[in-house]
C-alpha cells in the first residue's frame, strides 16, 4: 500500500538533482569572484564561470521540458 521504494527514489533523485545545480552555480559564482581578483587569469576564470552557468541552464531547461507535457512527449517520448 505504501510505496517506500517510490519515496526513496524521489528523495534520492531530488537530492542529486539539487546538489548538481547548486554545485555548478556555486562554482560559477566562485569563479566570477576569482576573476575579479588582481593578478589572476581573468578570461579563463570568466570562461569557466559561464560554462558553469551554462550547465545550470541546461538542467533548468530539462526541468522545463519535464513540466511542459507537450515538450516531454516530443523530446522524451513519454
Amino acid at each position: 500500500m505504501i510505496d517506500w521504494s517510490a519515496f526513496l527514489i524521489v528523495a534520492l533523485v531530488s537530492w542529486v538533482a539539487a546538489l548538481c545545480i547548486v554545485t555548478a552555480y556555486s562554482f560559477g559564482v566562485r569563479l566570477l569572484a576569482v576573476a575579479r581578483d588582481e593578478g589572476s587569469n581573468t578570461s579563463a576564470s570568466k570562461l569557466g564561470a559561464y560554462l558553469c552557468f551554462g550547465v545550470c541552464g541546461v538542467i533548468v531547461l530539462f526541468g522545463v521540458v519535464l513540466i511542459v507535457p507537450q515538450l516531454s512527449r516530443a523530446i522524451l517520448g513519454a
Binding site: D3, F7, I9, V10, S14, A17, A18, I21, G63, L66
Partner: peptide, 17 residues
C-alpha cells in the same frame, strides 16, 4: 533549487508531494 527539484521529481516519479 531544492523545492523545484523535489516537486519535479515527485510529480514525475509518482509520489505527489
Amino acid at each position: 533549487v531544492s523545492t523545484a527539484s523535489a516537486i519535479l521529481t515527485s510529480s514525475h516519479l509518482g509520489f505527489a508531494l
